[in-house]
């Protein structure tokens, strides 16, 4: 697993802006220099509680 910090607070902030940018630009080509995995199994711990679980509870 390349990114042990998946779904943490920083990951939420990143994807909030990244998905917004992708939705605006709709690029014909998308490149990631440090892609990591496509999917991560969500685990129940403090880092994810501070990260993605607060996103699920926010507007």
């Amino acid at each position: 697993m390349a990114n042990p910090h998946f779904a943490n607070l920083g990951d939420v902030w990143k994807h909030l802006w990244l998905t917004g940018a992708l939705g605006q630009v709709r690029p014909v080509q998308y490149i990631e220099t440090h892609a990591g995995s496509a999917l991560y199994r969500l685990v129940d711990d403090v880092e994810r509680a501070i990260g993605v679980r607060t996103r699920h509870c926010s507007p």
Partner: peptide
């Protein structure tokens, strides 16, 4: 879209 995903980690 066309995509290029790069990583040095084999599992990823």
């Amino acid at each position: 879209c066309r995509y290029v995903f790069c990583d040095t980690d084999r599992a990823s």
